[in-house]
Design a protein around this nucleic acid. Structure first.
Lengths: 254, 254
DNA sequence: CTTGACCTTAACGTTACGTCATGGTTTATC
DNA sequence: GATAAACCATGACGTAACGTTAAGGTCAAG
């Protein structure tokens, strides 16, 4: 299939000017010029434009994109895998922002309090991403993934010790929760211990705790598929079980 | 808590220049200037900056942001709810991009074929979002949600009839699948009917079908929490059941 | 009391296009 | 077979949201 400027632009969802600009800077040249001087683009150019769009979406500058995809070492499969990883990271950041907006709403309603730093969670993370974009690959290669993650945690305002403790707490919560789930009783001793661990875990990221806020959470856990997926991944029904345990723990039920 | 320029900038994860620029254009003025001419920002400015960051993240221009948050009718709770909705929409678009990258990878390995339009799925959607940003609210208020969704579908290259058919097919698939799940037999007649409906449903968005590609999908369904959540929301275990049914349908199993 | 890290204003540079202007080409329609 | 609408081309200037550098004042620590 061959495309003129506007056809290609509407295929990709950009403006004709963008296509011409990419020609101007040598990023995307037409495969040929027809008899009346029109730019004509072929399948190879379509694929190249797709790659450009992925990089652009991830915030890479046009000059850098050109260097990357024109490099003789450029490997499309590797590039696609990297795109996937970066897009997943971006999604994780978006999830942080969504959590932030929900917390801010809770604060606006007086249900919780937030520190100033918390008000920018998910925005600061963007800096981390940009850092990663530039140096992440090298550092990861040299010192391993853990080093990078620790560094990210530090950047996010958590010390290494805090981060380790938070990780450990999360693991403990999961263990206790699955054990409690086996008993089937959300009012039982194990389930209530899990609810308390959940409160502790929450305190790491929330800074101030109130029973009302804690009680408001679990319904969100069940309603929001992101949370259900995280908990139910271990065992289906775990999210609902945790909700019931917390409702009893906070005195909302029974 | 009071902040100087750099302290505020590092709190929010932006550059000092950005903070000064926002003062210059009247978007974020310091609450006072100290004796040596330094800009000082208080709690109200921190909250205002957070709002600015949310709007900026969603692609709103600084001038428009100023008009919105300076309007006397500005309601912070309503704004936060709108942020949440827009962020969720952005997340859905990211999911499309992730699916796109995965399909492109499958195509690079020769497992499936893609149309040129499919190669830009999730990018074109961005146009839809921008449209929504400008006119969505009004149209939604006037004609209701359904009208907007139909319009989005048309924009995405689907006719209304196609979209309706696609919706109906999806509903039918879910009904058949839950019925099949009740029998517990992925090789049974109902389960195989569900697998065939799934193939038809897929054909709406994939354009070209191959048994290999179809067989490669279900493992992804189980591995990727987005898909498991979508299916298991109805009934836990549904995703795995569908995987087994498809594996038998494509002849990969038994 | 000096050094380095902060603060100020001013002004020019940059990226990735948007937006005309001016003129030729193709396509649909009457 | 003309004519209008919708496309194509190349300039060339405009713009948003800062980055960057320069030239000078301020403050906390050793």
């Amino acid at each position: 299939m061959e495309y003129t400027v506007q056809r290609l632009s509407s295929l990709a969802g950009v403006s004709p000017r963008t296509i011409r600009y990419y020609d101007e800077v040598g990023l995307l040249r037409p495969c040929r010029i027809n008899s009346s001087g029109y730019r004509i683009y072929g399948p190879a150019e379509v694929d190249r434009l797709q790659q450009i769009m992925f990089y652009r979406e991830l915030g890479v500058g046009l000059k850098a994109i050109k260097e990357i995809i024109d490099a003789p070492s450029f490997d499309i499969k590797a590039a696609l895998l990297e795109h996937r990883a970066r897009l997943l990271a971006k999604r994780a950041q978006l999830d942080q922002l969504i959590a932030n907006v929900e917390k801010t709403l809770a604060q606006a309603e007086g249900r919780i309090r937030m520190t100033d730093a918390e008000k920018f969670a998910g925005f600061k993370q963007k800096l981390i991403d940009d850092n990663e974009k530039q140096y992440g690959a090298e550092v990861r290669a040299k010192f391993g993934d853990e080093a990078v993650d620790r560094s990210n945690a530090a950047l996010a305002g958590m010390t290494q010790e805090q981060y380790a403790a938070w990780q450990e707490l999360n693991q403990k919560l999961m263990q206790t929760l699955t054990a409690a789930f086996a008993t089937g009783d959300p009012a039982g001793k194990l389930a209530q211990e899990a609810a308390d661990l959940h409160r502790q875990w929450l305190n790491f990221t929330w800074d101030s705790y109130s029973p009302e806020a804690h009680a408001g959470l679990p319904q969100m856990y069940v309603d929001d598929e992101r949370f259900t997926a995280a908990y139910d991944k271990e065992q289906p029904g775990l999210a609902k079980f945790l909700r019931d345990a917390i409702l009893i723990y906070t005195g909302q039920k029974q």
